[in-house]
């Protein structure tokens, strides 16, 4: 079950060209268990594209991503991945609770989201008060907190790929997020995160910089 925990996610020779511009070329790197990597670079440098490639949502023009020797993504092996892009990933016509239950079903963690979730102790982002309202009535901040709560459903040693998760977040939630990130890596999970204004005590293991196209 936890066989993926020791495997290394690595990429080699990644190149991407968008709209005629070369975003990055012959990128090599890896993400091992327990690592927190901060992905930085100027706007338009291709950070989101890079994350999407690592997530398996996009394909690079050249190079490949692998989990040890296996090709990636390989949905059969069930290596848990948590993706949080700019969009919230919440269906507007459902409620927060329905969305989270759907999310739990999608990742096949069917025993995870019990009907009375979240309880007080899991409610890291304070969503209980609006969890049953239709999502389209919620504010940006509330949506972001709901989206982040999806992380709480994640397998303990999963790979997390987070693109600007702090957007529209209030201070309390930011602190909660940082605690969550640290906890995740301490338990053997790993993550790559992009964030515009990291807090002062943000301490990633590594910083990966995309210089962008000149």
């Amino acid at each position: 079950m936890d066989t993926y925990a020791q495997k290394q996610l690595h990429w080699q020779g990644l190149s991407l060209r968008r709209g005629g511009r070369l975003l990055f070329d012959r990128l090599d790197g890896q993400l091992a268990a327990g690592e927190m990597v901060h992905l930085t670079g100027p706007n338009g440098a291709g950070k989101t594209s890079f994350l999407r490639i690592v997530a398996g949502l996009a394909v690079a023009d050249a190079g490949q991503v692998r989990l040890d020797d296996q090709r990636w993504p390989d949905r059969e092996t069930g290596v848990p991945l948590c993706w949080l892009g700019h969009a919230t990933g919440l269906l507007p016509t459902l409620s927060g609770r329905q969305n989270l239950q759907l999310a739990a079903r999608i990742t096949a963690l069917q025993n995870r989201a019990a009907p009375d979730w979240p309880t007080q102790k899991d409610d890291l982002f304070a969503i209980t008060s609006f969890i049953d309202q239709p999502v389209r009535q919620l504010s940006q901040g509330q949506l972001r907190r709901l989206a982040l709560s999806r992380l709480l459903l994640s397998e303990p040693r999963a790979i997390w790929l987070l693109d600007e998760p702090d957007t529209a977040l209030d201070a309390a939630s930011r602190t909660a997020l940082d605690q969550l990130l640290t906890r995740h890596c301490a338990r053997g999970g790993r993550l790559i995160i992009t964030r515009h204004a990291p807090p002062a005590d943000f301490a990633p293991n590594r910083v990966l910089t995309l210089r962008g196209a000149g």
Binding site: A55, L57, P73, W83, A103, I106
Partner: peptide
């Protein structure tokens, strides 16, 4: 995106 990342 969430669906595509999932094993479903």
């Amino acid at each position: 995106d969430q669906l595509l990342v999932s094993p479903q």
